[in-house]
């Protein structure tokens, strides 16, 4: 579903992403790991069409990003680090608004969101202003907003940062179900125990790929017992 060839992004003299090659298949949960500033978010932003790469090519959902970015946008869902919700709108109104941008009618948007709202037990907030609902639920809402239009590819940029363990477990159970239903999920995270849930991970350091593969393979190859150790070994160069 996603393929990059020598993807590079420079900001002035700083190279945020350096000749990155990726191949992510359908139904995969693919984790982006790395320290702050390693290039995870930049890579995700390029793949979402928010930032243009300096050089290299990328394909998302089988479409060339440079030439068919409009079609790509219909095929992806994106949840950014700062969940982009309108605090002065009700939960329902946020869903209807984002759904409308994907050409979904208000009722369709709500119907599509309903299973998620039930699953997160947050139907009671439907008619609350977003600014009134607890932060953990805002984050869940941001995830739902990224999913209502059924995108085949979902990008989640640190979706679980700052949420409680309960919410984190819910997030990952949703992510697993998405992958099981054939969607491709790209997740960036700081939490190494979460990395274990990924089918494959990419560990980035200074914009380059330090390692790529399934957690089990990587741990075996580097002779470490946990992703935590692997991360410390590869990502921070310690």
């Amino acid at each position: 579903m996603i393929r990059t060839v020598d993807l590079t992004k420079r900001f002035g003299s700083f190279t945020a992403v350096d000749k990155l090659n990726l191949e992510i298949g359908r139904g995969e949960i693919f984790g982006f790991l790395g320290a702050n500033g390693a290039g995870k978010t930049t890579t995700i932003r390029i793949l979402c069409g928010l930032t243009r790469p300096t050089s290299g090519r990328a394909e998302v959902a089988g479409l060339d990003l440079a030439r068919r970015s409009e079609q790509v946008k219909r095929s992806i869902g994106y949840m950014s680090q700062r969940f982009a919700l309108y605090e002065d709108l009700k939960l329902r109104e946020n869903l209807v608004f984002y759904g409308g941008l994907y050409r979904l009618g208000p009722q369709t948007s709500l119907n599509k969101a309903k299973p998620y709202l039930e699953r997160f037990a947050m139907e009671r907030y439907t008619d609350e202003l977003v600014r009134e609902i607890p932060p953990g639920y805002k984050q869940r809402l941001a995830l739902i907003c990224a999913l209502t239009h059924d995108p085949p590819v979902v990008f989640l940029d640190e979706p679980t940062s700052g949420v409680d363990p309960q919410a984190r477990r819910e997030f990952w159970s949703v992510i697993s179900d998405l992958a099981a239903s054939g969607k491709t999920v790209i997740v960036s995270t700081h939490y190494m125990e979460e990395a274990e849930y990924c089918h494959r991970v990419l560990i980035m350091r200074d914009g380059i790929s330090a390692a790529q593969g399934s957690p089990a393979e990587l741990k075996a190859a580097h002779g470490v017992g946990s992703m935590q150790e692997l991360f410390l070994l590869l990502a921070s160069g310690e």
């Binding site: 982009a84 309108y86 984002y98």
Partner: peptide, 14 residues
């Protein structure tokens, strides 16, 4: 400022 513009840019809205 609130980051929604970035979100809008990811949607197919022109």
């Amino acid at each position: 400022e609130i980051g929604t513009l970035e979100q809008l840019m990811v949607t197919p809205v022109s």
